[in-house]
């Protein structure tokens, strides 16, 4: 009976062919193969394809996250290195300034010592020279006295006046004091 029905459908198909979609004799066939197909696709997807794609996607996400973290770390390191460099530079600069100031102070101190020493020497030499000058001056006053007495004696004797040496000396001395 079933074959009869199929034959009838087969005979009708060419001329009617209105809607093969409504040819119910093909429904069991289509449904059977659809179910098989869907089961196969489901098995392929759930066993292989979907877990694989999910793992690839999460792996990629992980890689990207790791890379970003690594990049941040490297950036931080570079920042630290720059900071350290700047710090070292500042320290070196401060050190150089300190050394320069120290050296300057040392030189200044040495210079001060040398200058005061030189001043003292100069002062001593000046004093000596002044002493020498005083001696010379004293010497010269005495010489002048002697020359003045002698000159006075001579002048007096030339004028023809006899005068004793004591009086002349006293007179000259008095005059020179005045």
């Amino acid at each position: 009976m079933a074959t009869e029905a199929h034959q009838v459908a087969g005979e009708m198909a060419p001329e009617a062919a209105g809607m093969p979609q409504l040819d119910f004799s093909t429904f069991p066939n289509q449904i059977f193969w659809l179910v098989i197909t869907l089961i196969v696709i489901y098995l392929v997807l759930s066993r292989t394809a979907l877990p694989r794609i999910a793992s690839v996607l999460s792996e990629r996400q992980g890689t990207i996250t790791n890379d970003i973290t690594a990049a941040e770390e490297l950036k931080q390191k570079a920042q630290d290195a720059e900071d350290a460099y700047n710090k070292a530079l500042a320290e070196a600069r401060a050190e150089a300034g300190r050394i320069a100031a120290e050296t300057k102070a040392e030189i200044q101190a040495e210079l001060d010592v040398a200058i005061s020493k030189a001043d003292a020497e100069i002062a001593a030499k000046t004093a000596e020279a002044e002493k020498a000058i005083a001696v010379i001056r004293a010497g010269s006053v005495d010489s002048i006295k002697a020359v003045a007495k002698d000159t006075a004696k001579e002048i007096v004797s030339v004028m023809g006046i006899k005068a004793d040496a004591k009086t002349i000396t006293a007179a000259v001395t008095a005059r020179m004091k005045g």
């Binding site: 199929h6 004799s25 093909t26 069991p28 066939n29 059977f32 193969w33």
Partner: peptide
């Protein structure tokens, strides 16, 4: 003939 198992 189109049975449920026929390859179509």
């Amino acid at each position: 003939a189109i049975n449920w198992y026929t390859p179509t």
